[in-house]
Nucleic acid binder design. Structure first.
Lengths: 167, 167
DNA sequence: AATATATCCTAGTGAGCAGGTCGGATTAAG
DNA sequence: CTTAATCCGACCTGCTCACTAGGATATATT
């Protein structure tokens, strides 16, 4: 499997989408609530959110203590999926010698140098896709109207499946 | 690491590029020679080439016995990197529920459905990139002139680093 | 015919990592 | 002072990757 999104990336993105949906709430959103809504383990989410908080620049900000929780450190339009994925999954590099940015190493073997340009192309395709999509794109414009809704519960009927052309 | 090319994919593509460079030779190319040229383990290459041979349609054809070896089953222009990578690394699917072609499953969770479209976009970007590059593109037009060269030895000075725009 | 050189096939294996769990310390609200 | 949160590090467990080993079979050359 050449494209391998681990659970870190998968759950972490879901976590961020959840936070984006609650961005205009007056209170921070607790991991307990997110874990319940997304059916994920709280202890595991704690590990992921730590990465997001310690990122430079940070993607989430925390409030400790009772009624604490997390919120996005920036509006959803200003956070790209590329940022999130890089924090959670590490740099977008298909292999050791094709890290983003650095392609200076000249290797002494015959065909491997030529294949590196292939992997670089694939890497750039992924990076460009991820960098062009923001959290706001995933949450969708219709959600923005339900701003400031205090403790906004979602039922199954609220699930909307966007047409793929919408992305 | 979201993009993860295992050694199967890496070595396998190098193997195919090597075969493409010798496509116009009169004799098949042995794995022993490839292993030496690319500094790879013979026994491991045998496993990889098996996948390429048993693929449907096959990507390489073998000749057994002394002076045997492998050759591409089609000219390099007709073999895409997408074919090779799918044979070696399996279908291009970032996660279980985003296999190529099938996106019909509707999931009951809140944000995960929305994120699936993200992963589908990434998947398509990778697939499109790989499907648009052929073995001939990687070998490079300049190589084609050295056709029919019998047992063509390559020295270090033969290594050419193509500009990335050439891809 | 004998030998050398290939492909072909199946099993096994060791290290590393994904994907968590667990227990507890710290902080703040009511 | 109790409750509800974030914070922190250690540990564990099963799976997969990346090979290696050892042979069986096929064919060209001598």
């Amino acid at each position: 499997m050449i494209l391998r999104v681990s659970t870190k990336g998968e759950y972490g993105v879901r976590l961020m989408v959840d936070l984006a949906r609650h961005y205009y709430s007056s209170r921070p959103r607790s991991l307990t609530d997110i874990a319940q809504a997304e059916q994920l383990s709280l202890a595991y989410l704690e590990q992921l959110v730590k990465l997001l908080r310690e990122a430079e620049p940070p993607l989430v900000a925390s409030t400790r203590g009772a009624h604490g929780g997390y919120r996005l450190s920036r509006p959803p339009e200003e956070i790209t999926m590329g940022e999130i994925v890089r924090v959670l999954e590490g740099p977008i590099a298909p292999m050791i010698c094709a890290t983003e940015g650095e392609m200076t190493q000249i290797c002494s073997l015959l065909d491997s140098c030529k294949t590196k340009f292939l992997w670089a192309r694939v890497r750039d395709a992924v990076a460009q896709t991820l960098d062009s999509i923001t959290l706001a794109d995933l949450v969708g414009a219709s959600e923005q109207e339900t701003q400031n809704a205090p403790t906004h519960f979602i039922s199954i009927s609220d699930i909307r499946v966007a047409p793929s052309s919408a992305l």
